[in-house]
Design a binder for these strands. Sequence first.
DNA 1: CAAAAATAATAGTAAAACTATCACATATGC
DNA 2: GCATATGTGATAGTTTTACTATTATTTTTG
Lengths: 224, 224
Amino acid sequence: MKNLNIHIQVKPELYLKNPDTTDLGRNIVSSSIALISDLGFEAFTFKKLGEIIKSPESSIYRYFESKHTLLVYLTSWYWTWIEYRLVFAAANVESAVQRLKESIKILTRQIAEDLSLGEIDVRLLEKIIITESAKTYLTKLVDKENEKGYFAAYKQVVKRVTEIVTEINPKYEYPHMLITTIIEGAHHQHYFAEHLPSLTNTFKNKEDIISEFYIHLVFKTIEE
Amino acid sequence: MKNLNIHIQVKPELYLKNPDTTDLGRNIVSSSIALISDLGFEAFTFKKLGEIIKSPESSIYRYFESKHTLLVYLTSWYWTWIEYRLVFAAANVESAVQRLKESIKILTRQIAEDLSLGEIDVRLLEKIIITESAKTYLTKLVDKENEKGYFAAYKQVVKRVTEIVTEINPKYEYPHMLITTIIEGAHHQHYFAEHLPSLTNTFKNKEDIISEFYIHLVFKTIEE
DNA sequence: CAAAAATAATAGTAAAACTATCACATATGC
DNA sequence: GCATATGTGATAGTTTTACTATTATTTTTG
């Protein structure tokens, strides 16, 4: 398992007490990732999590308002990490085409190796993002939560990549639609590949087929 | 409100007793559409529905195993209806390009007019599909439910449209990825336009912008 | 070392998601 | 036309979820 020493900071709106500052907090976050990816978000409860970390539910509630905000926290952590990777991948790369290509790979490809930042198992987290992240905004509370900035990290990622698209073709009118289409699309393809294979095309044992599909799609779509 | 006299049949796996055969059953279905689009799926319960239709919860449970299978039923109804529209739109159209164009419109455009089939308000149902339908398969039970054929109607729609893609360009290798990408993508764009506008491009007051975006994307992507 | 902060232990609540039972009404088949 | 099957209503009960509240104990820190 590879370890990196960067530190991801999540907006204070997403927690009651910063879980990053205590052992219990970090344990809540890392164990919740394991438990959510094991049980799925619906069957996941703070009570079950409490049993695993040997703390009462009420202690978990001091960090997170609800299991929903915990999911928003995890999602936000993920997008902040993705943004870091986007910035890193773009550094010193002159060609916008090359930067876009690398960005699409980051947005659409699953992490291959075990990777852990702090106590966060990024690979497991990515599994959660694929299956559960849309549930953060597909709720009756979207508008309120959006006002509170719950989705800022995601928006920032989208913005950053759309800017590369615009750099390549300033006349292309729908960069946001395009980028959100491929982000959510890639999540779906990864999910379908595992659970509903007839909805995707993974007949070849070729790796990164999803990434290649989206790279092709994006460059064809934005060309003049 | 426009009424049409076609009849949509849903697979028996999706209900305990066919709601289509009794007044109570039809009332459960039509009122659930209104209530789900009002409360959102999470806050929707059989108890609340029972109060509206003035029947006890237990009577609703005679038709549907759970609120989850009711959602699967509604989704399946919707895709069966979409397939009917696809077949109808393709009838007597020689050009595959034209058939694909019309199919993409059907898959990506929201219904403009009020429309009711039997007691089903199709416009409200479409609102539910946009927000809630992904929740039918983003669960721990996907694999089991897939085996039972819960997602057959959706798969059939995807298959039908991919065949047109292949007719136009037999060498194109990823028709399923492409079609599911635009179906789910369009749902997202409609949702974002209403709730997270910075994730989309609806700055113009132009209608059918989402459809046009996807038509352009598809034809660019599949061209040789 | 005292005060403040964090955590544990325990209890309690309202609602959700069912399951069960029995009475009554209605439709159907012979 | 009557017995039987089927459908619906009324009511009650269970387990679990998603919290909230209170008090005691431990740990941190200034």
